[in-house]
Design a binder for these strands. Structure first.
Lengths: 186, 186
DNA sequence: TTGACTGGAGAACGACCGTTCTCTAGATTA
DNA sequence: TAATCTAGAGAACGGTCGTTCTCCAGTCAA
């Protein structure tokens, strides 16, 4: 197993465990057992647990936004693409093991003591918001709409995460539709 | 110090520490040191840390909604009361030590292993939503508007929590105003 | 004064956790 | 083959945590 493969396996296990149970509830030895990557190698790849958490959040951000963008890009109409964001959220909420927003959860747990975790959470929110801003611009809508959609999406994610329901996605979508219908919308 | 006073002091310290640093980052001995309530007494009042966390979330829910309702009740117009929710959020976000939603944070940290924490998080969201539904009904607006305002508020809370800014409150307020302006709004 | 009870301070206990170290087996190179 | 390097398994280390226990000072009843 070369370095790249070990790193990927470690991050696969870290993501599954950290997201599913919370970061502090998972020990480095749990990551070792789940990944098959020895402790020695884990610490060569990530010199401290905090670095593994950081790398987990960073990779998840890229993948998460990639999945969302791929789903949305399939819609032809720019306005439909805006609403497709919430369709994708609904699919995501229905997946096994969905437990809300990984960055908010990690920030709530470690943000007070880890600048790296805080930075990852902020970067994720900024990137998601920027992505929405792009969709809004493509649809020729006022820039302020992006903030509204961002808040609706984040609200839906946390509401679904604690309630264990996909319904918030539909509520958010319906609200977004209403905002698009409102004259000018912004 | 009688039982009631010891309980209040313990909960005061628990709330400050758990909310400020995260639950797992705070030991029972930290609560003892911050409250002046001995470990023996802490365990008489709360037979396990999980019960202290539960009581902290429960009391905070009552106080949080009480503060919100008191602020909102000062506005005469039912429609103004709806928007006042977001004014209060903005004040809250600006307070020292604001760190997002206590229930989402606790749920992200412990929800996977503690049914009591999950129950508290769900109860809080249900109660907040029901409160908003009451305001919406008082304003003679369609019930579906409550869901939209709830998502906007939750989104603003988590966005402000990670970004460390009060701006999301204004964004959410402006979006709410737009929704109120939209014909029928629901 | 004696005895019984209460509560606090803090030690103790067992478990775990992040991190490092030891030991060994296998691969690689000369 | 001999020497060197790598990596894994898992023990070890120092620290912390939730929880319980010990010991003692103070209080109150008789």
């Amino acid at each position: 197993m070369d370095t790249t493969a070990a790193r990927e396996r470690a991050l696969d296990a870290a993501e599954r465990l950290f997201y599913g149970r919370g970061v502090q509830a998972v020990g480095m030895d749990d990551v070792r057992a789940a990944s098959g990557v020895s402790l020695k190698r884990l610490y060569q790849l990530f010199p401290a647990k905090e670095r593994l958490v950081e790398a987990y959040l960073e990779r998840r951000d890229i993948r998460w936004r990639g999945r969302l963008a791929a789903y949305v890009a399939e819609r032809g109409d720019p306005e439909e693409r805006l609403l497709a964001v919430f369709d994708w959220l609904e699919e995501w909420f229905g997946e096994d093991g969905f437990r809300g927003c990984a960055w908010i959860n990690a920030h709530g747990e470690l943000g007070a003591s880890s600048a790296r975790v805080t930075a990852q959470a902020r970067a994720h929110q900024r990137a998601f918001r920027a992505y929405l801003a792009g969709l809004v611009a493509d649809a020729g809508r006022p820039a302020a709409l992006a903030g509204a959609l961002f808040l609706l999406a984040e609200g839906a994610i946390v509401a679904a995460g604690t309630a264990g329901s996909t319904e918030p996605a539909r509520e958010a979508r319906e609200t977004a539709r209403l905002l698009l219908g409102a004259a000018g919308a912004g």
